[in-house]
Design a binder for these strands. Sequence first.
RNA 1: GUGGGGGUAGCUCAAUCGGCAGAGCACUGGGUUGUGGCCCCAGAGGUCGCGGGUUCGAGUCCCGUCCCUCACCCCA
Length: 420
Amino acid sequence: MRWKAPKGMMDVLPPESERWREVVEKGVLLFRAYGYREIILPVLEYTEVFARGIGEGTDIVRKEMFSFLDKGGRSLTLRPEATAGVARAFVEHHLGKSGLPVKLYYWGPMFRHERPQAGRYRQFHQMGVELLGSPHPSADAEVILLCREFLIGLGLSAKLVLNSVGDDACRPAYLRDLRSFLEERTRELCADCRRRAEENTLRVLDCKDERCRDVLREAPGLEAYLCSGCRDHYRKVEELLKEAGVDFVREERLVRGLDYYTRTVFEFQDPELGAQNALAAGGRYDHLVEEMGGEPTPAVGFSIGLERVLKALPPVDGGERDGVYVVAIGDDARRKAFSVAFKIRALGVRCDLDHMDRSPKAQMREADRQGYRYCLILGEEELTGGYYSLRDLVEGTQERLGEDGWLERIGGLPARGNGG
RNA sequence: GUGGGGGUAGCUCAAUCGGCAGAGCACUGGGUUGUGGCCCCAGAGGUCGCGGGUUCGAGUCCCGUCCCUCACCCCA
């Protein structure tokens, strides 16, 4: 094989591409129903946008970015996520000046230079929302509910896990104590955790190693360190979720790998997905806009992994038959069939005809294979008799349509098979 | 970056001890001078990932290499 798509990147072919389209369109309709409007961002940003926004110490920035120098020598990076770009655009266009909150949704490709595995790709696609300007717990609860609504609307039942990672008032003290605890116990930790303790301390809490977990059971808990503001905020988010009848579990070890999160973080997990089990994730980021050079603007959002959602969805079920395939027999008929097909398409009815110079039998087989409901047959008999033969491929019946009104008849055909 | 598994037809896979590269599905044609699906017949389709080595002979054994995949790290 001569050429392949780059590692971790893939072509989406039909019929899979059609499922993508459906999922994205459902999401867009739902986001709009919640008052969000689309923002279309560049796929590239100056590298500093991500370095500052996501955090210099995060794995994403340290080793997962597709970066290159442009011809002017500036470093550009393919976006590894969308939130930093949204914050940059929010500041650049002074979106906060004309009234808050600002509610935006996006969708598109993201890029991370990681080793691919099940549910993880180098180019992957996310759709998500950002609610900028509100510090209120109802904003957190809204985006969580919206995310849940999206997944449920697709027929998925994901487990919601929730936590609070505190804010500038309380997290530093916790980190200090956690670090000193880890230093004391460092000999009992796995190699990864020793490294994490230095570089991304909170993530030690997430370690899967049993021995680390045993040690961490004795570590100071984040919850106990939360300041009254964070504690109160978190409690109210929980109350709103309960009020809405949403099931969730608090997972004290849930911490996210991006530096900008404050207070609420959450994840929707599907245990059947394998190691990469987060369908969607998000949280609050009260200082990101400020970090990007804007006014202090609290915000909250989430993003959904399209590939993971598609993978969790049940397999495609054939689909209904529709449309008309024009079967032409003989040169005269082929000539006429060509214009007939265009007339049918102009009605918005799916329609096709043979481009392979095939026999009538093969043309009908093609009609069947491509899922057409009807064949409009046009041969010498029809030409001399002045009619069209219309065959219903589901019923196996055939009728004659006169020269007058045949097009109207086709426009009025049932678009769907009768009851499947 | 680290570890496990795997690369044979378009797809999913088989090939015994080293001895003529196969099946199912899909595709094309025919069975019907103009009628799909089911059935029957026929056909087409291969750099056995790539390179080297051992051997009379390699898909099979050895070395190297590339790629895919799952997992770790991390994350959607």
